[in-house]
């Protein structure tokens, strides 16, 4: 089977965006398994990765159902090329050191917790049901990553320096979390999608509280990177997909 293009139905595209975010970040976290700074973190990062991959599976399955072209979760995940992927740039950034992974997780989870909480009110029953499950999971992701941000920020000089550097490097990808486009606007108006702009204040408060406790400095909002949602990614996504899709590409049509 060759590369597929998914129908331009807003709800399908919306579900794909959410699914891609979850899968790509889950994939990144799964790269740590066996290589973390301590055994407890091998297990914790794998836990978060498993939650995210689980969320992605539900969302892909739903996107496939709505599209109605008979595509399942694996076809959507394994047969789209990078320009068809719709995740935000933040989640595809490389793991870097542990500080980068933790700060990335924290910035993302601080956004996703209020996101899912709001999504529980969606008029779309499936999205609301997924949100109910995801909210509980993300509450743990946020707690776990925030605790580490504080430990690293307020730990040693070295950990403080690394955490601050991670924050400074990743900040440029946070603007994209709050963007909306035509695909989303119609769904927001219909009470199906969550308006990300409405989450900014809560996100900002969470970030300030944690950074303050961590003795870290919040970077200034400058120019922000964007493009993931329209399929314009960083160089990193291609390599993720090269790994992720290898077997499906090498043995087209096989059942695994």
């Amino acid at each position: 089977m060759t590369t597929i293009t998914v129908a331009d139905i807003p709800l399908v595209q919306y579900a794909l965006r959410l699914a891609d975010n979850a899968l790509v970040l889950g994939h990144r976290l799964s790269e740590w398994c066996g290589h973390a700074p301590m055994l407890e973190e091998d297990i914790a990062l794998a836990n978060i990765a498993l939650d995210l991959i689980g969320q992605a599976r539900m969302l892909y399955t739903y996107a496939g159902e709505v599209e109605g072209a008979g595509r399942d979760e694996d076809q959507l995940a394994y047969l789209r090329d990078a320009p068809q992927y719709r995740n935000v740039l933040l989640v595809e950034q490389p793991n870097g050191d542990f500080a980068v992974t933790i700060v990335r997780q924290f910035l993302y989870s601080a956004f996703m917790l209020p996101f899912w909480r709001r999504m529980k009110e969606s008029k779309d029953e499936t999205l609301a049901a997924i949100a109910a499950k995801a909210e509980k999971e993300v509450a743990y992701h946020l707690r776990h990553s925030a605790e580490w941000v504080v430990r690293l920020g307020d730990g040693t000089d070295e950990s403080h320096r690394r955490a601050q550097e991670a924050l400074d490097d990743l900040w440029i990808y946070t603007g994209e979390l709050f963007e909306t486009d035509d695909v989303e606007r119609a769904l927001i108006e219909a009470g199906i999608a969550v308006d990300p702009a409405s989450l900014r204040e809560e996100w900002s408060r969470t970030v300030d509280e944690v950074l303050n406790e961590a003795t870290l400095t919040r970077p200034a909002d400058g120019w922000m990177q964007t493009g993931g949602r329209s399929g314009r990614h960083s160089e990193h996504l291609g390599y993720i997909l090269a790994d992720l899709q290898f077997l499906q590409r090498a043995y087209p049509g096989a059942t695994w």
């Binding site: 899968l23 994939h27 799964s30 790269e31 398994c33 066996g34 055994l39 407890e40 091998d42 297990i43 794998a46 836990n47 990765a49 498993l50 991959i53 689980g54 992605a56 599976r57 892909y60 979760e73 694996d74 995940a77 394994y78 993720i240 790994d243 992720l244 290898f246 077997l247 499906q248 096989a254 695994w256």
Partner: peptide
Amino acid sequence: WITRAPTLRRKAALLAKVQDEGGHGL
């Protein structure tokens, strides 16, 4: 093989398995 597992179900199962082994170590 976690990053290269051929389906999402296999990927989740393998990750969970390797995580179990870490738990056994603990």
